[in-house]
Every structure is written in C-alpha cells, then in structure tokens.
Simulated assay, not measured.
Amino acid sequence: MDISVVNALTYDDFVKIFGNVVEKCPLISAAIWSHRPFKDLADIETHITEFIDSLPDSGKEGILRCHPDLAGRDLQSGTLTHESQEEQSQAGLTTLDSAEILRMYRLNSQYKERFGFPFVICARMNKKADILRQLSDRLQNERALEREQAIEEVKKICSLRLHNIVLSDIQTKL
C-alpha cells in the first residue's frame, strides 16, 4: 500500500488496517491517525514510537499485557491474532516438543509472576532456542530494565508489521 493510499484512509479503515501493529492495541493507531498526512512509513513508525514512549510505566505495561504468552494457551487453542500466529510459527514455536512446551510454560509463568506481564520478544527476529535462552536470561533483570527491554521488542514487532502492511503491496508490484 502506497503512503498516499495510507493518507487517504478513513479513520475507521486506518484503525482496522493498522490496529494490530501493536498487539491488540488499536488505540495507538487511532491516536496517530490525526497526524496525517504521513511523509512515509518511517513517519508512521515515529509517531507510534513517540506515543508509546510518552506513556507512563503503567501504560507501557498495559501494552505488554496485551501480548500472548509465547507458545502458550492461545497458540495451543488457535486463538492468537493472525500476526502472532505467523510470527510464532516462523520462530519455530509451533513445533516445540513436549519438553520444550513444558520449559516454555514454566519460564513464562515465572516471568509473569516476577514482572506482572508476559515475556515479549520479536519472534520473527529469533528462533526457538534464542527465545528460550533470552526468556531465561531476562528473568534476572530488574523490573524497570525489563519493562524497557520488552517495550523495545514491541517496537521491533510493530516495525515489521508496518512493513508488511505498507511495503507488501509495493514489493508485489515490482
């Protein structure tokens, strides 16, 4: 989708199309729609990043709580968003053996108990072994550091999702 098409979208269409670039947070897309016209994809991303960065810690944690557990019950029951399903699949989380599932469940539970939000990592930029290692390693972080690290991962996920929406049409026309 060309940036001129993005800028011509109605509010409802913009929120419908971009509403899940930050997992289950259409409010963010709704909030940045008024910044149109966007110069380019980077401009959209900048507005989203600035919105997230302007939130208090409780708002950032709210964003994190919208994310599913990796390889968790939503994956097992088929209730993940389309984007999360694709991302977890690409990372190899849909092919975990029973021991890996158990380890992931244990680590996810410990993480949520410690921090109060699910572990967030850009699955498309990692494979299952890296995800398991980072989940274990990041359990040692202090809460403030982990919140900021998780928010940085949200921004990576958002960037890749934005590129899928805006650039996918352009690339198919080449």
Rank of each mutant, 00 (worst) to 15 (best):
V5R: 06
V6M: 02
A8H: 07
L9I: 02
D12G: 10
F14C: 10
G19A: 13
G19Q: 05
V22C: 05
V22Y: 01
K24Q: 11
P26M: 03
S34T: 03
H35P: 02
H35Y: 05
D40W: 10
L41V: 05
L41F: 15
D43C: 15
T46L: 14
I48P: 01
I48S: 03
D57I: 15
E61Y: 01
E61H: 00
G62W: 06
G62R: 03
H67S: 14
P68Y: 03
R73F: 11
D74M: 11
D74H: 11
D74T: 09
Q76K: 08
S77N: 12
G78T: 13
T79N: 04
H82Q: 10
E83Y: 14
E83T: 10
E83W: 13
E83A: 11
Q85K: 13
L93K: 04
T95W: 02
L96V: 09
A99H: 05
E100K: 04
L107G: 01
Q110H: 14
Y111T: 03
E113S: 09
F119G: 07
M125K: 08
K127W: 14
D130Y: 06
D130Q: 08
L132V: 09
R133C: 07
Q134F: 12
S136M: 04
E148H: 02
Q149V: 06
E152M: 12
E152L: 06
E153K: 12
L160Y: 14
N164P: 00
S168T: 02
D169G: 11
D169Y: 01
D169L: 03
Q171H: 08
T172Y: 02
K173S: 12
